[in-house]
Amino acid sequence: MSVQMRCKNVSLGYEDGIVTEGLEFTVSKGDYLCILGENGSGKSTLIKAILGLKAQVKGDIEWCGDTKKNEVGYLPQQTLVQRDFPASVREIVLSGCVAKSGLRPFYSKEEKALADSSMKRLGIDTLSKRCYRELSGGQQQRVLLARALCATSKILLLDEPVTGLDPKAQIDLYELIASLNKEGITIIMVSHDINTAIKYASHILHIGSRKQLFFGTREDYTKSMSGMEFLGTQEDENV
């Protein structure tokens, strides 16, 4: 198992203060890391720091081995601009290749083939000419996932990918992500749903208020206290 990314004593925050500190974890090739935590605990901020969109306050995020910083695919939480954007599915999936194309003005044959194959992989090849803003939420998430696959074959970062989907579409998307993971792609996913985390993830990072509560394998997590506590509160809420 080769280490792909290492977080060393990382603190995250904005101008108005520290959000969380002392994050310490590693991600190896083929891992499925699930990041859990309450609203506002800093999960999205951590994803942004990993992507290099926002600098951490303290500590290091290192990329190791053959993975470089920008060889990642990213499935963001949707923004309003995207919702009414006039673009076809294929145009959006192709735009995942933009970093690969460098300064070349047009996409190459291989890049177009890559876009077509990732659409096929996610079962959206029949939608390729459709307009993005007219798709259902689940279809839109698949389009963005196909775009992420164009950007990387190594590591995917997903920020709450199932938000707003119905239960069936949620399960479909989780199964899809799990099958990508089986094909060898490392997954880092933010989730609210502890049950899916336990079902699919190999590792779990649990962020509490201002500090890291747990990092380790799924098995250890289910045994640990913080896991029990969190499971318990979730069950209470469900009653």
Binding site: L51, N70, G73, V98, P105
Partner: peptide, 18 residues
């Protein structure tokens, strides 16, 4: 193509190193 990518999703484009 770059203008399209930056217009559609600036964060994604930035994250992939553009």
């Amino acid at each position: 193509n770059k203008i399209f990518a930056v217009t559609f999703d600036e964060n994604f484009t930035k994250a992939t190193g553009v």
